[in-house]
Design a protein around this nucleic acid. Structure first.
Lengths: 132, 132
DNA sequence: AGGCTCTTTAGAATGATTTTAAACTAGTAA
DNA sequence: TTACTAGTTTAAAATCATTCTAAAGAGCCT
């Protein structure tokens, strides 16, 4: 808990009860994908008290601080990945399943040259899959 | 117009006045990106009558029929690309600018093996850029 | 403890999109 | 032409994830 508080402080976030609780769930080293909704439900199940708005705020703050990564696969709702390392995703629209693509599966041959006056900030690759 | 009606019929869509009007705007061979909102505005400017709901329905139907391609870059609203050929995108979050990446800029080295029992359906690559 | 700022909260507001049920129309057959 | 039927369009209401609001609460420094 002390370490979590320190990690939040380093990220420029005051370690409030709510943020520490969410950090304990999401920043434990496990790689998983959550939505604001799934996280809210998980928090409720554990008997913790964090309001809906704070869940959204915290997910956004963690993402801005680089503690989480936002994954855009559709525009129904946001997905957050606890794995912030460079990697890509498989996504099954039917089941809404999101799976990390192993990092050693090198995918990109080269990056294209960005338009004049621009630089590349991030690369998102989503490979849509479906059950055979 | 006759040709458009025929194209819609081939796609399994009855060529109604509204669909033909939208097809005339989007399926003329030009490559561009539209939103439901920008298309609605364009229709209004031209003095055409198509309801908001029909614009949404038509964009979805055209996409399902393979006449348009949906591009997911964020989850604020949907973008549709009149270029349905395999290609990727540059996206600037700041300006909301979406630019096609020239097709001859080959990006992918190889596709990763999809999870067991699954096959690859589509590959979305979005390269986020920002002004230097 | 006091005090200042940042946070949290419940609830309202937003905004893109979908749904609804009734009115309309394309296509077909008489 | 006329009539019919299934598919479409419509305006308006509903939905739903997310953000905003203003008031109450909680870190943290002195």
């Amino acid at each position: 808990m002390r370490a979590l508080a320190e990690q939040l402080r380093l990220a420029g976030l005051r370690p409030t009860r709510q943020r520490v609780a969410i950090a304990a769930l999401l920043l434990d080293g496990r790689h998983r994908h959550v939505t604001a909704d799934s996280l809210t439900e998980e928090i409720a199940t554990l008997g913790l008290q964090v309001s809906c708005g704070t869940v959204y705020n915290t997910l956004n703050q963690f993402t801005d601080a680089g503690l989480l990564r936002r994954v855009t696969v559709h525009n129904n709702y946001s997905l957050f990945d606890t794995n912030t390392e460079y990697h890509h995703h498989f996504y099954d629209e039917k089941t809404n399943e999101l799976v990390d693509i192993p990092n050693n599966d090198v995918i990109l041959k080269k990056l294209p040259n960005p338009p004049d006056g621009h630089e590349i900030k991030a690369v998102d690759v989503v490979i849509h899959i479906q059950r055979k």
